[in-house]
Design a protein around this nucleic acid. Structure first.
Length: 1008
RNA sequence: GCUCAAGUGGCGGAAUUGGUAGACGCGCUGGAUUCAAAAUCCAGUACUUUCGGGUGUGUGGGUUCGAUUCCCACCUUGAGUACCA
């Protein structure tokens, strides 16, 4: 009986589906375990071998946990809203729902063929109205909530309204916009409804606000930084500008501190937690306000030659600084060019320069501005602020190194203490006063807090950083120009997208004020549109919908023609972002078909939270932060028992492609004029493409004798390339072009015929081969992508080697978390392991397993395998398990083991990794039940006890020879035995050892 | 720029509290089997050597009896950087 993997795998996949082997129950006597993969986006290209890496790892863990007696929840679904489907819709007119459904079908087929133990009865799709009903529902909950700093949690907005009505907002300690006006209860009660709604928006956890975006007028859409290359759109190369737009935002900043603190309670990778900490960006310092000098006051304090009558009215520049102790070192202020004060304080003389600079900045992306520290640019506004203590005037500049969205969009620049300020000051010849004792700042700024002693700073002189900071905050408070403040870099998250293929908001507008649709009328389904592009007037795609108005009487979506702004109102035209649907899906899996509530309390209290979450680190600050935010919000609302959704999280690394390159020797034959060294006008240059094998290119490049030079020489005088004047000159160059990896074998040899069919332009090309006649490609590791022709499809792997081989090989490639290249060639190793394993159980006559007593060696092999595999799975070190299996199979084969007592438990060990072959052999051993819940074998250390140890004998730390000694030997006896050894004498060559280090059971090291 | 991660044979990688560097697999070389190929099996495979040995884990230092592992500085590559998912 041969190992017919295709048949076996199809058989067991069918069995699992039919018997619902992996269906998780919401009630069980077993302990629960929740293993989750990050939501896949079903792209049109289907899965490549990189995608299943994390799924295989989580599947191994889920299967392992079932063997360990757990009730395992291991669901899967689709994050099926997204840009690619919309982009495709724009190009083809095909509704994204149709393409998405097709893509999901492909994904499902591909996932099924790999043999995952998903509970498909719980599948969810974010683009399904029955799912996004609950995304809309959470949005409404957020809208109806505010963050109370006193109770440190989200509370219902009705509580806030009560407070406003009874005592105004002066004493309300809430997270809100910066510019909230103070009002009394009486005032609140006299405000009209619109005014009240405006104020409430400044408190709600989701709110409408003006946000800066990358606007591309030509495409009529907002672009991600990612989609902008060199200041123009990646698609089409259109100009992009920074623009303010009214959009929905999520007040995630309310949760900044809890998101930060929560990190200490979860078992996520340190690098991921570090990313989130940086993203949240907590900094402790002070806010300081500087008064802009107006025309009248300026005359009295100004001793510089500046334009009078410059600034009208009174203005303040608010800054946040982590170094208030350096306030006497301020020699200028820098505002972000987008800062709202810029237009108000710029003097007429500086107006032209400032406006030009602001315009230039609008064209630069934020990332550009952050990354580029070498080019220093800025402009002087002509305005001055007054130093709070010295009362000296300080010039106000604008510079693009200050970003509008960070802090207040303004900094007090202390060039002696901050390198960017220092560089700016040097560049514009602004003075750099030194306020540090005993520090040379002639070359660079001094930013070391710990070594700081303040000087030239009036009452701060002689104080260190801590003392000075405390003192200055007191003084600022006395002046009323500042106070201690903790700042977070975390910005509120923009929640509107000018896209079609996303969740519609359950929002309509009355008098310009957003109103929530009552939750009982959800879902509000996406309307049909003619076109998926923005409208001609620049509205989002939903502006194309003709039936997109809310009838408040009938509580349904009706035609736009009926809008009367009395009972029928326009609906929101934006849709929600990609992360909306993925921010709570893990909870929905617990009770995915519940139509009455987002999930039942029974379900959430049973499953509680995700025990193991596996996914890519690219989600570190997007999905993983937003999800934590929503979870905390739901916790505040009493919906979930834990305020962290995932106890443990592992990042899988990416699988990279091994691209193949063919070197093309491009030759241009120029037909020369008889007399002149230029090409003739009536005969155009002729190009010849010659493909050259790898080592000939290497020889050519290192100027060794090679076939390229020979070929070029052979061209001279070749009648094919001589024109009527009898002269040719050739120009040549070598380029590398991608060859599809499917044409290349394990030895890097190219299938020339297949390549010619794929690239007809080389149909008649000459191929310069290796000495042995083969044609070899150059290999390089790159991201796996269609455009690089290095994508490997798992379908073909499953056909050629089987899913079990694919699963093992993906794990065998290397540590889960690491980036590693894929090379299909290596899969033969794990495939022959499976064949070898098969042969341990089955030969030409069928099953060969016996009831023979196992040998001591076989027991040792089995038990060391149990120990290692269990440790490996617990440590997510799946690659080393595969090696361990190979070693076990090699050893058992050598031992000619046929004992059931060994081979049966071995199957359970392998079953999480290679479930199909395990199921098949398990059933051949006579079991009628699936192996999936068979108990994991127990490790027995007694089988591994050794009496001897092969000691490495080192001299000065270098191992020179080994020596077998009994393990129970004393240190003295070991020393005696080692020193008596002939090789020891050889090594020492008569010297007396200075020292002999003996670690019993480990090593002997002789020094001398 | 900032933040994080990673550098070990021809390749993927192993070495789990500092203790035999290169497990396991690919590839390669030789052999067996075969009409031949595939498959399978056996042996070898870090570099170097005057065959005693010597050198080796990105580079340069340090700690230690002993460092791939710990410390410092640097170099290289990759990722994230707020609307790709």
């Amino acid at each position: 009986m041969i190992y017919n993997f295709n048949e076996i795998e199809a058989k067991w996949q069918k069995y699992w589906a039919k018997n619902q082997t992996f269906k998780a129950e919401n009630q069980s006597d077993k302990p629960k375990f929740y293993v989750l993969d990050m939501f896949p986006y079903p792209s049109g290209a289907g899965l490549h071998v990189g995608h299943p890496l994390g799924y295989i790892a989580s599947d191994i863990y889920a299967r392992y946990k079932r063997h360990k007696g757990f009730n395992v929840l291991h669901p899967q679904g689709y994050d099926s809203f997204g840009l690619p489907a919309e982009q495709y819709a724009i190009q083809t007119g095909q509704h994204p729902a149709i393409t998405t459904a097709e893509n999901i079908k492909t994904y499902r087929r591909q996932l099924d063929q790999i043999g995952f133990s998903f509970d498909w009865s719980r599948e969810v799709r974010t683009s399904d109205p029955s799912y996004y009903k609950w995304t809309q529902w959470i949005f409404i909950q957020l809208f109806n909530s505010w963050y109370n700093n006193e109770s440190n949690k989200a509370e219902d907005i009705s509580e806030l309204i009560k407070l406003f009505a009874s005592e105004g907002n002066a004493n309300v300690n809430a997270v809100c916009d910066d510019d909230v006006e103070v009002f009394s209860a009486e005032e609140w009660n006299t405000f009209d409804s619109v005014k009240q709604q405006e104020i409430l928006l400044q408190y709600r956890l989701t709110y409408l606000a003006e946000t800066e975006v990358n606007w591309c007028p030509a495409l009529g859409t907002v672009l991600a930084n990612d989609e902008i290359v060199n200041g123009v759109s990646e698609r089409g190369g259109h100009p992009v500008i920074r623009k303010k737009m009214t959009q929905w935002s999520m007040r995630i900043s309310a949760y900044a501190e809890r998101l930060l603190q929560g990190l200490d309670t979860i078992d996520w990778t340190d690098s991921l937690k570090e990313s989130q900490r940086n993203w949240i960006g907590k900094s402790v310092g002070a806010s300081v306000s500087f008064n802009v000098i107006t025309s009248e006051t300026k005359q009295s304090v100004n001793n510089e030659n500046v334009t009078l009558n410059a600034v009208e009215g009174s203005h303040k520049i608010e800054v946040f600084t982590t170094r208030p102790d350096t306030i006497f070192g301020v020699s200028f202020m820098t505002l972000a060019p987008e800062h709202e004060l810029v237009s108000q304080i710029t003097t007429p003389a500086q107006k032209a320069e400032v406006e030009a600079y602001v315009e230039a900045t609008a064209k630069r992306s934020e990332r550009d501005r952050m990354a580029d520290v070498k080019t220093i640019t800025g402009a002087f506004t002509g305005a001055y602020v007054e130093h709070p203590f010295t009362k000296e005037p300080i010039p106000v500049w604008i510079g693009d190194y200050v970003l509008a969205g960070y802090g207040t969009g303004a900094v007090m620049s202390v060039p002696c203490g901050d390198q960017r300020d220092y560089d700016f000051a040097k560049h514009f010849n602004i003075p750099i006063p030194n306020i540090f004792e005993g520090v040379d700042i002639s070359e660079e700024a001094f930013a070391d807090k710990d070594k700081t002693i303040i000087a030239n700073s009036d009452f701060l002189n002689g104080l260190n950083y801590k003392e000075a900071t405390k003192k200055i905050i007191e003084e600022l408070e006395k002046l009323g120009q500042g106070q201690g403040k903790t700042n977070y870099r975390l910005r509120d998250a923009v929640f509107s997208r000018q896209r079609y293929w996303g969740e519609p908001f359950p929002v309509y507008y009355v008098n310009g004020m957003p109103q929530m649709i009552d939750a009982k009328y959800l879902p509000i389904s996406l309307p049909e549109v003619e076109k998926y592009l923005p409208t001609e007037t620049g509205e989002p795609p939903l502006g194309n919908a003709t039936v997109w108005a809310w009838d408040t009487a009938k509580n349904e979506v009706v035609s736009n023609d009926l809008i009367n702004n009395k009972t029928i109102h326009p609906l929101e035209l934006n849709t929600m972002p990609g992360w909306a649907g993925s921010s709570q899906y893990f909870n929905r899996y617990m009770d995915p078909h519940n139509d009455n509530e987002i999930f039942s309390q029974e379900a959430i209290n049973y499953w509680q939270q995700v025990d193991l979450y596996i996914g890519g680190s690219e989600h570190a600050t997007g999905h993983l932060l937003y999800s934590r935010f929503w979870q905390k919000f739901m916790f505040d609302k009493g919906l979930v028992p834990y305020d962290e959704f995932a106890k443990k999280l592992i990042n899988q690394g990416m699988i990279l492609g091994t691209s193949a390159f063919v070197s093309v020797l491009g030759i241009q034959v120029l037909f020369l004029d008889e007399n002149e060294e230029s090409s003739s006008k009536n005969e155009s240059p002729k190009s010849i493409g010659v493909l050259v094998s790898k080592s000939e290119v290497e020889k050519y490049n290192s100027k060794q004798e090679n076939k390229i030079d020979n070929f070029l020489n052979s061209l001279k005088g070749n009648s094919k390339y001589i024109n009527s004047f009898g002269k040719t000159v050739t120009v040549h160059q070598i380029n590398n072009i991608h060859a599809d990896v499917s044409f290349v074998n394990a030895s890097d040899e190219l299938d020339i015929e297949a390549f010619k069919i794929w690239r007809p332009e080389f149909k008649d090309a000459e191929f310069i081969t290796e000495e042995d006649g083969t044609f070899k490609v150059k290999r390089e590791v790159e991201k796996m992508s269609k455009s690089k022709y290095n994508v490997v499809n798992p379908d073909q792997i499953c056909i050629d080697y089987g899913a079990d081989s694919l699963r093992l090989y993906e794990m065998f490639l290397g540590p889960l978390e690491q980036y590693k290249p894929w090379n299909t060639a290596g899969i033969t190793g794990v495939h022959s392991f499976l064949k070898k394993l098969w042969k341990l159980y089955v030969d030409d006559n069928g099953l060969k397993v016996t009831n023979a007593e196992p040998s001591k060696d076989s027991l040792k092999t089995l038990h060391k395998t149990i120990k290692k595999v269990e440790e490996d799975i617990e440590n997510f070190s799946f690659n080393t398990s595969v090696s361990t299996f190979m070693i076990a199979a090699n050893e058992l084969t050598a031992q000619k083991c046929t004992s059931k007592d060994i081979l049966e438990p071995l199957l359970i060990l392998i079953s999480p990794y290679a479930p199909h072959i395990a199921e098949e052999l398990w059933s051949q051993l006579g079991h009628n039940e699936s192996i999936a819940t068979a108990a994991f074998p127990t490790f027995d250390a007694s089988h591994l006890v050794e009496s001897n140890k092969v000691y490495p004998i080192s001299f000065n730390g270098k191992m020179r020879f080994t020596m077998e000694l009994p393990l129970d030997l004393s240190k003295e006896a070991i020393e005696e035995a080692v020193l008596a050894h002939e090789k020891t004498k050889e090594q020492l060559q008569g010297r007396t050892p200075k020292k002999v280090i003996i670690v019993p059971g480990k090593i002997v090291n002789i020094v001398g």
